[in-house]
Design a protein around this nucleic acid. Structure first.
Lengths: 193, 193
DNA sequence: GACGGCGTTGAGCGATTGCTCAATATGGCT
DNA sequence: AGCCATATTGAGCAATCGCTCAACGCCGTC
């Protein structure tokens, strides 16, 4: 019995949400169109009626990470507090999942055009958030950074690298250790009190 | 006209070298068994006679990176000189290619057992090289690092992260910039002269 | 109630790819 | 030369996966 329920999310939305759920469960490479349509409870042909698969997958990934970065870089007005949230939420319990998705996206972006687009946008946005945060803190005299923009790049890079170590199969890098390294790197960047 | 040339590398070696060449050209994900056997000038069945494909691919990758890290961390006796080589060779012209391979390996290691093994070994070895270098420099009083082991981790992490930015589709990160960031991070780690 | 457009279905196509295995070629040995 | 073990071949199998498209059901309209 098809449709006729006006309150139900549109077919497009249904497919996007099913994709997001599956991407979270199995990763970007492992999601298959058949799984998505099954999860959404629709026929396999419907996906292609509304989307091209690479577009849908990239869209789902973008939705996921928009949410994440928005909550990570939501400004409270107090840069100190914001940076603290950046540190503590960076390597939380299930951030492994997200970092795996981040790296899968980075890899896919090399061949997948839609993924390339959304990944590039998200990268810029993500580092931009940290950069704004640092600049705000410097403006208020909380920190004394020689160059907040460059510090943001270095911290972002280390963030990525530490995340990679967390994911890496045979390394003993723990979330608490990673967080400590990130804090130390920031301390190293600060000139005076 | 098959074999009979005793001086020719063994079939195994032939296959490994063909794999290495192709991995360098097209990447880990894109190499196919058929391409390898064609490049090696043998029938498709021969590969499976000597290897399982995942094993061969992981072996080829390991060979490639053993060579790279060995030349990158070859000790000259002068830690200053060694670190300089670490900095300048880090993001050279074709290091993009290698970093792409590094990230592909990291991704593959999540599902591919042989790749997981060689990648883990190479990660440890790679960071160990930098760690030894830093310790040597501290022992000789060249640098004053509070904790060379942790500095090695942070620099490695940043190295990885900067490399990721270099590969990233729509970022403007240049090799010279990346190198400068790495140097600056090291300078930040140094306590006194 | 007949008609027609729209949303939906799902069997199956076509391309890809690792791997099998019966057939064949080669080289050493007697 | 005859024979056998070993090395090698490559057509084809089997599984995977995105996507097509002829068919169908639903609903509004006349």
């Amino acid at each position: 019995m098809p449709v006729s329920d006006k309150s139900a999310p549109s077919r497009r939305e249904q497919l996007v949400e099913a994709t997001i759920a599956l991407v979270l469960e199995v990763g970007l490479r492992a999601v298959k169109t058949r799984d998505v349509t099954e999860r959404a409870g629709v026929g396999t042909g419907l996906l292609n009626h509304y989307f091209r698969w690479p577009e849908l997958r990239a869209l789902a990934w973008a939705r996921l990470f928009e949410e994440v970065t928005q909550s990570q870089f939501a400004s409270s007005g107090d840069p100190r507090e914001d940076l603290e949230r950046y540190f503590t939420t960076a390597f939380t319990m299930d951030s492994r999942r997200y970092w795996h998705l981040w790296m899968e996206a980075a890899e896919l972006a090399a061949t997948d055009e839609p993924m390339k687009t959304v990944f590039a946008k998200m990268s810029v946005h993500s580092r931009g958030g940290l950069c704004d945060l640092l600049r705000a803190g410097c403006a208020k005299g909380i920190w004394n950074l020689e160059n907040p923009e460059e510090t943001a790049i270095r911290l972002s890079a280390m963030y990525d690298g530490l995340a990679g170590m967390l994911l890496s199969p045979a390394e003993e890098m723990h979330p608490e250790k990673a967080e400590a390294h990130l804090r130390r790197a920031f301390a190293n960047e600060c000139r005076g009190l």
